[in-house]
Design a protein around this nucleic acid. Structure first.
Lengths: 214, 214
DNA sequence: GTCTATAATACGATAGAC
DNA sequence: GTCTATCGTATTATAGAC
């Protein structure tokens, strides 16, 4: 029982659990260091297995990387898809979207960076979002804005760019978190109360930013 | 004249030029791949030198990395510092800040990611912004907001978080640029006209988002 | 399925000629 | 100042025992 205790007692294991452990560990390592920078040894350590196991399940580093990228795209934004925004007035739908988007970042703090890195490092060589995936992720916001603009709830908007701006409000907060820490080491930006402040301020900014004047 | 032509004819060279070439190439490589992921061979190729030159000028990979990180902190945000926002009414100052922040991203498209990566990968181990640097970069925005809130131009705001939100509006646009490309390959988000749209939409969103109601 | 041991290679770094 | 050639180690990947 020397070194394998890093995650949990392994002993009798089955394939499913080991694979998930590896994927979880890899998601963190790849999100921190990208494809080139990630070390299989670091992933193995974190998952509590040997690098041989990684090759056994995922063939090679690239295979593991692709498997890691696959999860967020299929699974993560399903949640946004299941929320049926159409049943709410545009303004309420927008509030709900912002809450859901921020919650998604809280629950999967590594995935945004994982995604940035893939685009930035490899220009999406290993994973291009399909139009469907992309639409699920950002299309629902786009649609809310369009609907609100048509029915007069929102002012005249540049829809595509406003979509990006609203996502930026929600997500950038998490991107600069590590930097912010050095400036205010005492303040935990990921605590529930701080997330609450972030959410409320974001909703206030966006709503007064795009609502019709009248 | 085999492989050295990647940047420019080298032949007779002097130290200053070579160092700058290496730094420029390294900034791009490190911003794409981070410290671990970057390859000295890639940097050397891009700069049109050999890896021996990198060691000659910067001792080792880490020394080069630190030199690269130093540039943006000292030089880049000086520009924001020189703009004296105090002489303008808060609303005008805010407009100017947004324009300057976006322009800065256009002129240094790699630096934001470089910065993200250092925080994300190494938790700022190799370069923590000093409070002064940080203040220069984001403090001027903070001050504008505070002034506008005090003099009644802006509504009641959560100053720290609103600072982040506004920066997010300006910067996130560039972060997701590579992803966006796959969705709309025909549209160049870095063209002058698109940047113009971005800037105008950002100003409109922020101003109507935080101006006093009355 | 999981490990240990080891092969094969990629990469950072250095020595020495020019 | 710049290159070519080379060393040593870190890292990916594989073979084979259990």
């Amino acid at each position: 029982m020397a070194k394998r205790e890093s995650k949990k007692s392994r002993q009798v294991r089955d394939a499913e659990v080991t694979q998930q452990d590896i994927l979880d560990a890899a998601e963190i390592e790849f999100s921190h260091h990208g494809l080139n920078g990630a070390r299989l040894s670091a992933i193995a350590d974190r998952a509590g297995v040997t690098t041989a196991m990684i090759h056994y399940y995922f063939t090679n580093k690239e295979g593991l990387y692709k498997a890691v990228l696959q999860r967020p795209a299929t699974e993560a934004n399903e949640k946004l898809g299941t929320l049926n925004f159409d049943q709410f007035p545009a303004i309420d739908a927008l509030k709900l979207f912002i809450q859901a988007a921020i919650l998604n970042e809280v629950q999967h703090p590594h995935r945004q960076m994982l995604w940035f890195q893939e685009a930035n490092q490899n220009q999406g060589e290993f994973f291009k979002l399909s139009k469907d995936d992309w639409s699920n992720a950002h299309g629902s916001l786009f649609k809310i804005l369009k609907r609100g603009m048509t029915d007069g709830s929102f002012r005249e908007l540049d829809l595509e760019i406003t979509t990006i701006h609203i996502l930026g409000i929600c997500i950038f907060y998490f991107s600069i978190q590590e930097n912010w820490k050095h400036f205010k080491p005492d303040c935990d930006r990921l605590s529930e109360s701080e997330i609450q402040r972030h959410t409320e301020a974001a909703i206030a900014l966006v709503l007064s930013g795009i609502k019709s004047p009248e």
